[in-house]
Design a protein around this nucleic acid. Structure first.
Lengths: 356, 356
DNA sequence: CAACGCAGTGCGACCGCTTCCGTAAAACGG
DNA sequence: CCGTTTTACGGAAGCGGTCGCACTGCGTTG
């Protein structure tokens, strides 16, 4: 910058003003400075700017694992919004490890990130990190999961309602022996989905044997194992609700392995509505989560805070939507014929999927 | 920092020394300083450090789109390696837009990123940005695609060989009418795959009608459309090689839509071996790319450069592997019986998949 | 015993930029 | 034409660290 100032025979401050337009500069001078800048390929140091102004245009985003197909869309939503406001996103994977999470948290603090977007790890303790009103903590908004004791902004999904409706669909299709594969019990959204599942069963006066509730860890492998346990039970459940699609994939795998047929012998509904749901065999009925919106709204919320909004925290809840495909079989002895899907609809189910 | 120095009655420089261990400090003093730091929750400003030392621990990563399932694994590989060396990754999506790419490039330069990991956009011009030996350009390594005129470090995949082997597999299965759906023709890896495909056909003296080469843009939708065109031709190809799995998914969709059967009426092989390949119907035969390794080795290469390795650029090429599943049908009239898959193998194809 | 070396510490310049303040020149009003 | 306001610019003080250098004791050495 000094170099530029010298070559253009102006002061260093003036250069700053022409770059940022923070003060009027005579056109002639301005042009001279601009010319020199073009020649030298000057790129202002965001570090120095950040240091001086004590604010940066970086947003830290802490997520469990970008490799889990649920997250990329969410990240993208956040990044797109951030980008539009010329903020940049720095991405951190915690592997659901609270230690790694708080490490990243401090790291981002040291970069003086303008704000933080966090999908808390299972058993996260970031709520406590924020507690003592420590100075110099940037605004934070939690996404998808709300850790214990978190009182700040958050945007989540109506997990309980989504699971409730999914289970209801199973019941309305005539199923009476319905099992569930849940996620880790420390994860709020996992707990909520189970709650919704239980609620639907209870309302329909259906029993839920303890062994029909299998806990897994939200990945394909553990879903596969849980399904194996379930499918060997007698009586076997006629339907399974998997609390996310990755586990549902594992269930599908287990069904094939045991030479069962889906949906003829066992119905299945997942949660997340990942893209591959349309292409599995059979196409997977699943609860759609607006993951892109989740990220985008969270980013918007954060930007508001960054720009100085005070006031009580917002707790946004986004709605889900059950996407009907081919993995649920309406049972003939159903007493719910009213709400049963007509047979013709099952014959060209692609249209349902395509309508998404 | 000044605050700490005061409370511990030492100089500001000494605080720096105990934090970084850059000079011996008497245990008693050190402990006193550490105590104060713990109380105040001090977090050194990475900005100030970066400014003073002129180096940061950030690595910029520029990719087309995290939403494309090929990339998360790659990003993860890079991030894991970076993390181990206490570098952090800033993620940027270009949407294959060269303008956005160079915008991000400059942005990252202004953050004084220690190095850059770039998956060039189609038609990328970053090679030219690096040309004039402009000062203050951090080390860069290109991943997955090598833009025109790029002479720096890079790590890519043996696209041509992978496509060649995939096509060979189709030919050995008895197919004579094989079509291909390629990616954008400006993308190096897309071109290479087509080249491998052509090579295999030529070696087997098989004709390739011009209309059997359909260009799409590496996503499901365009793959679907290309497949539709292909499947309506007469004579219809008996096999399709899709240059990536997303497009293969589109092909599967088109096959179902036209009430054809895969693999009985039309065989299919993809490229990438994304995770969903095992779960589509039928399970998709695909060319595995070591995406995690791609990211990890690129990060290692970059770190070497950051740590000062001089010398000529490395051009690493990682190998692919054809994963056999159920989307390819051996034709009975095959004259390649030697290399044909035995029927029994087709009956329990899950084992092939499981062996992955 | 004087000279010397070295571990331990304080001091202050500086990294590149923003921004406040002061001032000279220009514009303005009477 | 002169005083006053406005405008455009230069000067310089930091932002929060790092690091070279100077200084101070104290143990070693000739």
């Amino acid at each position: 910058m000094r170099q530029i100032a010298e070559r253009a025979s102006v002061s260093i401050g003036t250069v700053s003003h022409v770059v940022n337009g923070t003060a009027p500069v005579r056109p002639k001078l301005r042009e001279r400075v601009l010319e020199v800048i073009r020649n030298l390929g000057f790129q202002p140091s965001a570090l120095a700017q950040g240091l001086r102004t004590n604010r940066t245009r970086m947003i830290g985003m802490i997520i469990p694992d970008i490799t889990n197909p649920f997250f990329p869309g969410l990240v993208r939503g956040a990044e797109d919004v951030a980008f539009k406001h010329s903020y940049r996103v720095i991405l951190c994977n915690t592997d659901n490890d609270p230690a790694k999470e708080s490490l990243y948290f401090n790291e981002l603090r040291s970069y003086r990130a303008a704000g933080l977007l966090i999908i808390p790890a299972a058993g996260s303790d970031i709520a406590s990190s924020l507690k003592p009103g420590t100075a110099g903590i940037p605004p934070v908004v939690c996404i998808d999961r709300r850790p214990d004791g978190w009182t700040g902004d958050s945007v989540v999904v109506a997990n309980e309602l989504g699971a409730y409706r999914a289970t209801q669909h199973l019941i309305q299709s005539g199923h009476r022996h319905i099992a569930v594969i849940t996620g880790p019990s420390l994860l709020a959204n996992s707990v909520e989905r189970l709650k919704g599942f239980r609620k639907a069963l209870k309302e329909a006066n259906l029993p839920l044997p303890a062994e029909f509730v299998q806990e897994a860890v939200f990945d394909t492998r553990s879903g596969f194992q849980a399904a194996r346990r379930l499918l060997r039970m007698l009586p076997r459940p006629t339907a399974i609700f998997a609390c996310n699609d990755l586990m549902a994939l594992g269930v599908l795998h287990a069904i094939h392995e045991l030479d069962l047929r889906c949906p003829e012998e066992i119905s299945l509904v997942g949660f997340d509505d990942l893209e591959f749901c349309e292409y599995t065999s059979p196409a997977l009925t699943s609860v759609y989560q607006p993951s892109y919106q989740l990220g985008a709204t969270a980013a918007n919320l954060l930007l508001e805070r960054i720009k100085g909004r005070k006031g009580s925290p917002k707790r946004l809840v986004l709605d889900t939507e059950l996407k009907l495909r081919n993995s649920v079989l309406p049972l003939e002895h159903s007493s719910w014929s009213v709400s049963r899907m007509p047979r013709t609809a099952r014959k060209s189910p692609r249209k349902v999927a395509a309508a998404r």
